[in-house]
Design a protein around this nucleic acid. Structure first.
Lengths: 146, 146
DNA sequence: GACATATAGTTGTTTATACAACTATTCAAA
DNA sequence: TTTGAATAGTTGTATAAACAACTATATGTC
């Protein structure tokens, strides 16, 4: 018998991710209002390329927690937007290395500012120590299920 | 200046909802393994109809935090699966009241058990007081942004 | 009662996700 | 060195979400 027994009616939000959905929608609206023609999912791929440019699609799968077809199509769309380029690896011709274009490099600061702004709006009024606990719990949930 | 300033690299999980995505995937796998031909999104609609049968599509929009086209198509698919029926309201012919079929009524206990099981797996090893803090924070996030 | 407005729901289009099936390349073992 | 397995990526198909544009019905004000 678990000590984490959920009262009925409380499990819904946890499963559907109401909070993260609300955050993503708010950030998307900020992108649109700024004239950034970029989805949150595309941004999440750029996010990892800003940290390390030239990683493979498989590494993007691991980093973004998506499957290979999802990354194939996100990279397709990012290429159409002229945000990334696929470059076949010299060593292993199965691998595409994904590189940011100059245009995408320029978007990092602006979009990260909007993301931080969104999180500040979301967590406004929440004491820092509670945020820490929340982050910790969500990390454990992820580790328990991955 | 916010006191909720995120260290760079920590905002990603909050925005993408890694934890709730992992929970939803785990539950979907349990549905599939049990032979339940039902998506999590369809289940989330049934969830609210189990609480109150015969509510309108608009009420389902509010309850599930989805827009009207999304609910139209979810109800379309649930009707094809013979899980719900649209019934035009007598008083106001703009309104469809959505009713569970007997088949859908039977699924409540089984699927709620699987959902609770999934959450117990997710929150295994997390002390109850931290779960409470996490739920509280996520609720505030939602209220701040909705 | 007529007309403007609001509300409920549907349809079209684009993007994204999950799963299965597929191709191409590399690796490893006989 | 050949062959079978593993790995990287793509394509097909179904479901879902967001947004805009649309139809139908109801409401409220003159």
């Amino acid at each position: 018998m678990s000590n984490n027994h959920f009262k009925k009616g409380e499990l819904y939000s946890f499963i559907t991710g109401k909070a993260s959905t609300a955050i993503a929608r708010r950030l998307q609206k900020k992108f649109n209002a700024t004239g950034l023609n970029l989805t949150i999912e595309q941004w999440s791929v750029l996010y990892h390329l800003w940290k390390q440019d030239g990683i493979s699609q498989q590494e993007l799968c691991n980093a973004t927690f998506r499957d290979k077809p999802s990354i194939t199509r996100l990279v397709d769309n990012l290429e159409k937007l002229n945000m990334v380029k696929r470059v076949a690896s010299e060593n292993d011709r199965r691998i595409n290395k994904i590189y940011l274009t100059r245009q995408a490099q320029k978007l990092q600061e602006q979009t990260m500012d909007l993301a931080e702004e969104t999180l500040n709006e979301a967590l406004n009024t929440v004491p820092p120590e509670k945020i820490e606990v929340c982050k910790e719990v969500l990390q454990i949930v992820y580790d328990n299920l991955k």
